[in-house]
C-alpha cells in the first residue's frame, strides 16, 4: 500500500526532492526547457552539452536541469558531513543573459523558502574558470548567511570561443541549499522524500553506501592502467569523430585533387568552402569521457604535477575542437 499523497511532503523546506521539484517548476514557469540529467559522468553541470555547447553560437536558449556531479577527489568515505564525491547541481542557463537575472535568482530563493527579510543574501566576487573546458566568466558566489549556496556566472568564453551573446549561468548546490532550508548539519540527515516516521527516507539511506564504495573505488581500486587506456581511447575517438564529421558544401574544384578522398581534409580547414559538422555531439561525449577519466586518475594520485598540466591541455584541445565543430551545426547557429 502506498501512503496517501501528502502535498506538504513536497514543501522545499521539508524534502530534498521537494526543493528540486520547486526549482524545476520555478524555472519551467519562466520559459526554460526542463531537461533531465545528462547520462554521462561529469564533474559539474556545466559539462552538460545543454550548457557547454548551447552557450556557443547566436541562438537564444533557456534550459534548466539537475545534474549529478562526480568529483572523485572529494570523496570522504561518507565520513565528512559536507563533502561528497557525488552530489547534485541544479543548473540554469539563459542565453542571452536577461537584464533581471539577479532578481530572478532571488525570486527562486524565495520560492524554495528562503525569507529574504530574515537571511543575508550577498553576491561575493568569484570569477569562474574551467581550464579543461577552455571557458571563463565573471560573476559571484551567492552567499546565504555566509554560506555559498550558488554560483552565478556570465559566460564570456566557452571552448575557447567568445560568447556572443553572453549566457547567464546559475548553479545551485542542492544539498547545501537543502541542508540550509531544512536546518540540518549533516548532509546524510537530509530528509529526502519528506516522509515522516517510517516513511521518512534520508539522504544517507539513498547515498551513504555509494559514497563509501565509490571513495574506495576512486582512491584505492580504480584500475589506473585501464583508466589511462580509456583516456587515450576517448581522446582518439573524439579526434576521429571530429575529423570524420566535417562535411563540405564546397565546389569540388576548390579542393585539391590529391586531398579529395582524405577524410581529414576538412579538419585542417580549406579555403572558401562552406563546412558543416555532422558529429559534434558524439565527439563532445568523448571529450566528457576523457575529462572524467582524468579526474579519476587525478584522485588516484598517479598524475604528477607536471603531467597534470599536459592532461588538462589535452582535454582543453578536445573541448575547443568540439566547440568549433558545434558552431558548424544547426544548434550552433550554422545555416
Amino acid at each position: 500500500m502506498f501512503p496517501a499523497a501528502q502535498s506538504d511532503a513536497l514543501d522545499p523546506t521539508r524534502s530534498f526532492q521537494g526543493l528540486l521539484l520547486t526549482l524545476q517548476r520555478f524555472w519551467a514557469e519562466r520559459g526554460c526547457v526542463i531537461l533531465q540529467p545528462y547520462d554521462m559522468e561529469v564533474g559539474a553541470g556545466t559539462f552538460h552539452p545543454a550548457t557547454t555547447l548551447r552557450a556557443l553560437g547566436p541562438k537564444p536558449w533557456k534550459a534548466a536541469y539537475v545534474q549529478p556531479s562526480r568529483r572523485p577527489k572529494d570523496g570522504r568515505y561518507g565520513e565528512n558531513p559536507n563533502r561528497l564525491q557525488h552530489y547534485y547541481q541544479f543548473q540554469v542557463i539563459l542565453k542571452p543573459s536577461p537584464p533581471n537575472l539577479q532578481q530572478l535568482y532571488l525570486d527562486s530563493l524565495r520560492a524554495i523558502g528562503v525569507d529574504l527579510a530574515l537571511h543575508d543574501v550577498r553576491f561575493v566576487e568569484d570569477d569562474w574558470e574551467s581550464p579543461t573546458l577552455g571557458a571563463w566568466g565573471l560573476g559571484w558566489e551567492c552567499w546565504c548567511d555566509g554560506m555559498e549556496v550558488s554560483q552565478f556566472t556570465y559566460f564570456q568564453q566557452v571552448a575557447g570561443v567568445e560568447c556572443a551573446p553572453v549566457a547567464g549561468e546559475l548553479t545551485y548546490g542542492l544539498e547545501r541549499l537543502a541542508m540550509y532550508v531544512q536546518g540540518v548539519e549533516n548532509v546524510y540527515d537530509l530528509n529526502f522524500n519528506g516522509g515522516e516516521g517510517e516513511d521518512r527516507i534520508s539522504y544517507g539511506e539513498v547515498f551513504l553506501q555509494a559514497e563509501q564504495e565509490f571513495s574506495r573505488h576512486n582512491f584505492e581500486h580504480a584500475n589506473t592502467e585501464m583508466l589511462f587506456r580509456h583516456f587515450s581511447d576517448a581522446e582518439t575517438e573524439c579526434k576521429a569523430l571530429l575529423a570524420a564529421g566535417w562535411e563540405e558544401r564546397a565546389a569540388p574544384a576548390e579542393v585539391p585533387e590529391h586531398y579529395r578522398d582524405d577524410p581529414r581534409y576538412g579538419a585542417f580547414g580549406s579555403p572558401a568552402v562552406e563546412q558543416r559538422h555532422a558529429l559534434a555531439l558524439p565527439a563532445y561525449d568523448q571529450c566528457i569521457k576523457a575529462s572524467h577519466m582524468f579526474n579519476l586518475l587525478d584522485a588516484r594520485g598517479v598524475i604528477s604535477v607536471t603531467e597534470r598540466q599536459s592532461y588538462i591541455l589535452r582535454v582543453r584541445e578536445l573541448s575547443k575542437a568540439c566547440g568549433a565543430a558545434w558552431l558548424k551545426t544547426a544548434g550552433g547557429g550554422a545555416n
Binding site: D127, L138, G139, A164, P165
Partner: peptide, 23 residues
C-alpha cells in the same frame, strides 16, 4: 582590472564592457 559583456547587446562585437552588468 577585468571586465565583461552581458545581455542581448553582447551579440554584437563591440558592446559595452563593465565590471558587471551596468543598469
Amino acid at each position: 582590472p577585468k571586465s565583461m559583456r552581458w545581455g542581448k547587446a553582447s551579440s554584437a562585437g563591440a558592446s559595452l564592457r563593465w565590471v558587471r552588468p551596468l543598469h
